[in-house]
């Protein structure tokens, strides 16, 4: 979960990595089953496959975005590359690479996604979806994928009880406090 974000010519490139404690072939096979991906990818509504092409429907805040993607490389157990084709709402290309982990018997998964967000409101929605910190949504989705591969389910607290008190001044004070601390930590050169 270390990501790197660069902008080049209006294209935003996010790369990240995660280690999954399962064999390379298994991790590849689960990912290659595109119609099954919405289980892990929080905002992806559906993916349908027709030959070399797949159709993605994504539920971004502000509206639904859709695109067709085509596989540009597919080496079983090792790598999948794709790019959007035709009149895509979000122009993008991506790569997911699977390597034998150096620690233990798992798989190192490397993901790079380059995308050009649409203009207007939808663009704002897509930006939101990609998270406050760029790459956060990709990391979250990969962590969900990891949970599914290693444990078979995804952790949640949704639906548990809590006390009546809601968001209030305490929260806001704490938020300010957090930002203040982060600024100071940065000043001292220490991660917050």
């Amino acid at each position: 979960m270390a990501h790197d974000v660069q902008d080049s010519g209006g294209v935003r490139v996010v790369s990240t990595a995660i280690t999954i404690h399962r064999p390379q072939r298994e991790v590849y096979a689960q990912w290659r089953n595109f119609p099954g991906l919405p289980r892990f990818l929080q905002y992806v509504e559906s993916i349908t496959e027709e030959g070399e092409c797949s159709h993605w429907i994504v539920d971004a805040p502000g509206g639904t975005v859709e695109w067709d993607a085509e596989i540009t490389a597919d080496v079983p157990g090792q790598v999948i590359r794709w790019k959007s084709v035709g009149d895509a709402d979000v122009v993008q290309r991506g790569e997911i690479r699977f390597e034998k982990a150096r620690q233990g018997s798992g798989t190192e998964v490397y993901v790079t996604i380059g995308y050009r967000p649409p203009a207007g409101l939808l663009g704002v929605g897509v930006a939101k979806m990609m998270g406050k910190g760029p790459g956060k949504q990709i990391d979250t989705d990969l962590h969900r994928f990891k949970q599914f591969m290693e444990y078979g389910g995804i952790a949640t607290i949704h639906g548990q009880p809590r006390g009546a008190a809601q968001h209030d001044e305490w929260q806001e004070e704490q938020e300010e406090d957090k930002e203040q601390k982060a600024r100071e930590a940065q000043k001292e050169g220490v991660p917050a």
Binding site: H21, G106, G133, H143, E150, A155, I157
Partner: peptide, 29 residues
């Protein structure tokens, strides 16, 4: 979780899967 790399090494307090907010934690910590 009992299933991840750290749980298998009996380093349970480093479990990689149990925190639904793992990414938020990673961004902060």
């Amino acid at each position: 979780c009992g299933a991840c790399y750290f749980c298998k090494r009996l380093e349970f307090s480093a479990c990689e899967l149990s925190n639904p907010n793992a990414i938020e934690a990673a961004m902060l910590l």
